[in-house]
Design a protein around this nucleic acid. Structure first.
Lengths: 155, 155
DNA sequence: GATGAAAACTTTATAAG
DNA sequence: CTTATAAAGTTTTCATC
């Protein structure tokens, strides 16, 4: 690859792939007004440089029996490195956890969880989250509806 | 398709595709201990029934120049249907918004935004979010670090 | 469900304008 | 960058056990 900068054609390619990760190189090259060879070279370069991290299937959580999304904010008891490291690791291992962030501000963590109903939520809290030591306080919010869900943004 | 229920083989297929959306049918069938034909039939059935919603490339937001994730919680001034509908639509149209949920609890909305630095954040608030009418109050939290980011959960 | 097979298409590599 | 070529692999359909 020449360098790390992306031109408008690269961004076009990324916008298409962020929407349809299984498009063929031929169809992609047509959509971005390139011939197949340079299009293919660009896609490979974007994959190798890590701009494209991977390709995944997006699944319907409702069909999988986990229709509810709960946002849980958590504050830990003591702010020492070891507790933080362990808490982060334990979180990442829970399959119900879709996303988790370390935050600035009032809470230490924001956790997004996929569960089924209040019963699934209670079970997750009791059997999984509260089993991780160090939590001082948590606040949960159920998502009533998802208004938008993208997986990547190309500026 | 026979019916809407998923067996263990379907779930295995979904777990693989949620990790590698570009795997060939041949390789997938080996991973789930099926021969290629029934594996292919199952994948097509999962696509047609909507369990697999789509396939996408996951991009590195840092490489794209939007390294920061900000969580914005918003409460609207008046809780009437029309204001809510318009606010949700306007949100979904903003490219910086990766995810947006209507919530229970203290705030009406949770919005996850990809931006670049405090400058990008301020610009987004002033030029985009605050241009949508009806906001009473908002609270923003920068994500310091992402601890986990999955896109689907297969129970 | 497994196997086999054939046509159309895709990927990947390479060469030349 | 474009066009062209070619081998290897994949998708898709279909028939048979």
């Amino acid at each position: 690859m020449k360098d790390g900068r992306l031109d408008e054609v690269d961004r076009k390619i990324l916008r298409v792939l962020a929407t349809d990760g299984r498009i063929s190189n031929q169809a992609l090259s047509e959509q971005v007004n390139l011939s197949p060879t340079p299009c293919w070279n660009r896609v490979k370069a974007l994959e190798e440089s890590g701009v494209i991290m991977n390709y995944v299937a997006i699944l319907d959580q409702q069909a999988l029996g986990l229709p509810d999304t709960v946002i849980i904010e958590v504050t830990l008891e003591r702010h020492d490195d070891e507790i933080f490291r362990r808490f982060g690791e334990a979180l990442a291992e829970l399959p119900e956890v879709i996303e988790a962030y370390l935050l600035t501000g009032e809470y230490d963590y924001l956790i997004k969880v996929a569960i089924s109903g209040t019963a699934g939520y209670e079970k997750f809290l009791r059997e999984k989250l509260y089993k991780i030591p160090g939590i001082r306080h948590s606040r949960s919010t159920f998502a009533l509806r998802c208004l938008k869900r993208t997986h990547s943004v190309v500026p």
